[in-house]
Structure formats: C-alpha cells, structure tokens
C-alpha cells in the first residue's frame, strides 16, 4: 500500500517545471533582500577583511601593498590590544551578569500582583528607550564630583566626606562604564524574563507546592528551568551588544582616563580614523568579527533548539 501511495504522489510533484517549484520561487523572492543586505552588510565586510591584509591608510599617502598576515601578527603581539580585549570582555560579561540578575529580580517583582503594575512597567522601560547619547550625558553629569546628584546624595547621607571622582580614576571609570551599560540593558532583560515568567504554568507551580516545595524550591526547580532558553537568548544578545558597544563608553568617558576604558570598537575606531591605519584597524575588527561569529553560532543553536 505504502509503495503505491508514494508512486501515485511522486509524478504529481515532479511534473512541475523547476521555475514552478516552491523552492525556486522562494529563492527568487529572496533575491532583492539578499542584494540589499549584500550591498550594505556583506560587501563592506568582505572589503574590510580584504583590507586587513594590506597596509592601507585612510589618506592614500603611500603605495598600497599586500602584506599577508602582518597586521594580524601585529594585533596578536600588541600588548595594548590585549589589554583592551581584556576590558572589553570584562565589560561585556559584567554587563550581562549584572543586568541579568537585576533584570530577573525586577521581573519577579513585576510579576507579582501589585497595584499600578502597568505604570511600574512603563517606568521600568525608560532606560531602555532613552537614546544612548542621552544616557551617556545623564550619567556623566550624575557622576560629576561637584554637581552630580550621586555625590550630593552620598554626602547628604553622610556616607562620604568628600566627593568621589567616579570618572577620573581608571578603576572608577571602568566600573562606571559597566554600571551605565547595566542601567541601559537591564530593562530589556527584565522584560524578556517577565514574558518568560508569565509563561510558566501556575498548575505546575501549584503541583510543586503540594509536593512540599517552598517558594525557593519552586523558583529553583520549576521556574528557573522554564526560563533557561529565554535566559540564554537574552544574555547572548546583551553580550553581543555590549561587546560591540561604542557610543555609551565613548560618550561617557571618551575612552579615558588615559585609555583606561578603551573597548575594542573604540580602539579600532582610533586606529582607523585617528592613526589612519585602516589595514590594522580592519584586522582588529576582523578578530572581533570572528569572535562574535562564534558567539552568534552559539546563539543560533540556542534559538533553533527545540523547547524543553
């Protein structure tokens, strides 16, 4: 019977010419989008990678030469690059961990049945919707040692005797750059986690409680496993955004003091547009690209994995 059915269906499908087939039409329809993406995303990327194998400078003030992997060798021997890479990683991981914990906490609160929940949720979203430039300047002034609200509050509460120059010391500036990025990103985490929390079945939680589980047990053994996929997805995304981040750090600290808050995108920018070493800058960007490609593959696997 099976064989008969197969042979009855096969000819009907294969009778279509190739240009009538669904896959062909699908590819045709994809062409405009592909060309658009290719011209504004992929082609510049390919050009950039090609440039990383040359001595290209921003001003064409010397002959262009193919120098193979010289730029990459220089990148990997550049102490400053490794210092910058280290801080970039710390910046991205610090942001992910802190904004995840904060976002989860806020999501748990927002998931409780409280009055004016809608208003709180709206307020919660403010840091996420404020443009990066505004965020940077708000914080810059809030952190000012003389007129900044944070120093004024700390002094009023008697917690400090003299103001703190948050952005004037390397450690302070590095920490504050992460804090500001956490402030910017935690609402996103909270929102996604809140959606995840709302999808956790009340019946399963009730069942766990009937089985003697306390609030902490329910959270640990029922809620958290349900949030696994959504957690992985939003932490990966925030990691990618933070790793590529430029504006929030640059506008807050300008990379200072004394280059203490250089992240990789700032370093590549300076190499390209200040030092005019386009070849070297693109090799740095390519290293970043490869690293982010790995992270993105990880992200793709998570999002394409079947639900638990």
């Amino acid at each position: 019977m099976k064989n008969t059915n197969k042979s009855a269906q096969k000819p009907a499908a294969s009778h279509k010419k190739f240009y009538q087939k669904d896959w062909f039409i699908a590819y045709i329809l994809l062409i405009p989008a592909f060309l658009f993406l290719f011209s504004i995303r992929l082609w510049p990327m390919v050009q950039g990678i090609g440039m990383s194998f040359t001595n290209r400078r921003l001003l064409n003030d010397r002959p262009l030469k193919f120098i193979a992997f010289d730029n990459y060798i220089r990148v990997f021997h550049d102490k400053e690059f490794w210092g910058v890479a280290g801080y970039t990683l710390a910046y991205a991981l610090g942001t992910v961990i802190c904004s995840y914990l904060l976002g989860l906490g806020v999501a748990l609160l927002m998931n409780m049945k409280i009055r004016y929940r809608g208003i709180f949720r709206m307020i919660l979203m403010i840091p996420w919707v404020v443009p990066g430039v505004v965020t940077a300047y708000i914080w810059k002034y809030a952190l000012n040692d003389q007129i900044g609200i944070i120093n004024i509050m700390l002094q009023s509460l008697g917690l400090i005797k003299k103001p703190i120059g948050f952005l004037a010391s390397p450690q302070g500036a590095r920490t504050m750059a992460i804090v500001v990025n956490v402030w910017k990103n935690y609402p996103y985490m909270a929102l996604v986690m809140l959606a995840g929390l709302q999808s956790v079945s009340e019946e399963i939680k009730d069942a766990a409680r009937i089985d003697g589980g306390g609030a902490l047990d329910v959270f640990r053994y029922v809620v958290m496993p349900e949030l696994r996929t959504v957690s992985m997805m939003c932490t990966t995304l925030v990691f990618i955004w933070s790793f590529n981040s430029f504006d929030s750090v640059f506008l807050l600290t300008g990379g200072g003091p004394n280059k203490a808050t250089y992240v990789m995108s700032i370093e590549a920018y300076f190499q390209a547009f200040q030092k005019m070493n386009l070849g070297y800058a693109t090799s740095m960007a390519t290293v970043m690209l490869i690293f982010m490609l790995v992270v993105s593959l990880f992200y793709m696997r998570i999002t394409s994995a079947p639900p638990d």
């Binding site: 990327m45 955004w241 640059f250 506008l251 300008g254 920018y269 690209l289 992200y299």
Partner: peptide, 18 residues
C-alpha cells in the same frame, strides 16, 4: 550567523563621539 552579526553590529554601532 554572519547576517546576524552584521545586523547586530549595526544595532550597536555608535553615534559619533567626542
């Protein structure tokens, strides 16, 4: 993944600084 990177990099791409 390459497309996502391109897109995400664009999202995180900066406003000109100072």
């Amino acid at each position: 993944a390459a497309m996502i990177i391109g897109t995400l990099a664009g999202c995180a791409a900066p406003a000109a600084p100072a």
